[in-house]
Amino acid sequence: MSLNRDRADTAFTFKGGMLPMTVMELASGDPERIRAQLTGKISQAPAFFQHTPVVLSVEQVDEPHLALERICAVCRAHKLLPVAVRGGSDPVKQSAWALGLGWFPPQENRPRAVEPRVVEPEEPAEAALPAGTVETMPGGRIHRGTVRSGQQVSAPEGDLVVIGAVNPGAEVLAAGNVHVYGPLRGRALAGIHGNREAGIFCHDLHAELLSIAGTYKRLEDIDPRMLGCSVQVQLKEDQLRISALT
């Protein structure tokens, strides 16, 4: 029973969060070149190198094997703390894990069509497999009723459909699209694992925050003419586009 969990025996709680994170986009896998450049940078901006956590993005490095351990050592010697690796081949992923680092899938799928994606109901799995097509989203979720302040409803593997209102202070999240059939007054985050094709659809937009794949807009940034309207939100050219659903 949740009431019995008082502070004394709750060792932790899980919370979702979006933290600003420095991504170190590597153009080369050569530790010596990285060292040389870091040494130059440290003299320009010593304040930056204070055990700053960084994500090493190796998406642009076209090598199946990287001297990841040495690259990390170079970073640490310059007071940068690699916490995770993004992209790279399978061996790179394995060695990241072996070094105790996290691994993120590559961010890139930008060159694909910017057309709003039509969500097909239950595509057969093999149809979704060919390279470059949209992944299937099993594990979607339908929530019926008001999502109240302080509540969080998430669909970690697919689309989230809310039939009801999302009130101020509430949060709805999905790996895929977020649909709200009711007023959206809280926060809505779509594509939480980085799916840039995900969208947010709602009646009556009053959202505190809209986010797709980590790119967000606050209520303050939303065009006031869109407030109260039925809208769709898409990520286009690294910007959230809000357009009316007619």
């Binding site: 949740s2 302040s149 509540q151 009130n167 101020p168």
Partner: peptide, 14 residues
């Protein structure tokens, strides 16, 4: 109103 909304959430879950 916001705090009442929060309490309504607790009533339906806790």
């Amino acid at each position: 109103v916001r705090d009442s909304d929060r309490i309504l959430g607790l009533l339906s879950s806790k």
